[in-house]
């Protein structure tokens, strides 16, 4: 009806056929389309690393939600990224057990090596560093996730082994 709708109806073409197929598979077991909002956001993010404004609108159209409604959902959750992230996201646990085990110093070490603080991405786009609540591996603290991998018992050695390269690459 309004111009807005016309423009937005083109939006869903911003999602790939594959993404749409995966989202539709989720739709099969929710009674309302909007029920698959979080799944859809995750599907798109899995492919693209983050959810851009265009993708958000594309998903909203596809699920017959308003942009605002979906934005409200997307910005509520810690693991939906509304800004670009690096190739890998480091989810660094800063909750109590890891903290007792000295995670603050390790975070400083990682930050220094990668040249980024929480919420930032390395200049070579390889890592984004984010804090995460307790990862449920407190017996192996301190821990973090790099992409899908859980890294436990982090210490200086591990940090060097993991990120020694990253900082050099960034400097080149």
């Amino acid at each position: 009806m309004s111009k807005k709708q016309i423009i937005q109806s083109d939006m869903s073409s911003l999602l790939s056929a594959e993404e749409i197929a995966e989202i539709d598979a989720e739709l099969a077991h929710v009674p309302y389309k909007s029920g698959a909002a979080i799944d859809a956001l995750k599907i798109v993010q899995a492919k693209r690393g983050w959810v851009s404004d265009e993708c958000l609108r594309g998903i909203a159209r596809h699920l017959e939600m308003s942009d605002e409604e979906l934005e409200g959902v997307a910005t509520f959750y810690n693991l939906i990224y509304r800004r670009p992230v690096g190739e890998k996201v480091i989810l660094f646990c800063d909750s109590v057990s890891c903290w007792i085990s000295g995670c603050d110093d390790i975070k400083t070490a990682i930050s220094q090596r990668l040249g980024i603080d929480y919420g930032e991405t390395t200049s070579d786009n390889s890592y984004t560093l984010l804090p995460v609540p307790c990862l449920g591996a407190c017996d192996r603290a301190p821990v973090m996730m790099i992409g899908d991998e859980l890294v436990t018992h982090i210490d200086d050695e591990k940090v060097t082994a993991l990120f020694g390269k990253a900082i050099r690459r960034a400097e080149e």
């Binding site: 077991h29 929710v30 309302y32 909007s34 029920g35 698959a36 909002a37 979080i38 799944d39 956001l41 995750k42 409200g72 959902v73 509520f76 959750y77 810690n78 693991l79 939906i80 995460v132 609540p133």
Partner: peptide, 29 residues
């Protein structure tokens, strides 16, 4: 019975059972 795995998008409050239900409905938790 059908059973599905729904991975969360991450929030501690989703553990609260009624917030969890909202999250399952695709809403703000």
């Amino acid at each position: 019975l059908d059973m599905y795995v729904h991975p969360s998008a991450g929030r501690y409050i989703c553990g609260e059972e009624t917030a969890l239900i909202n999250a399952l409905e695709g809403k703000r938790a």
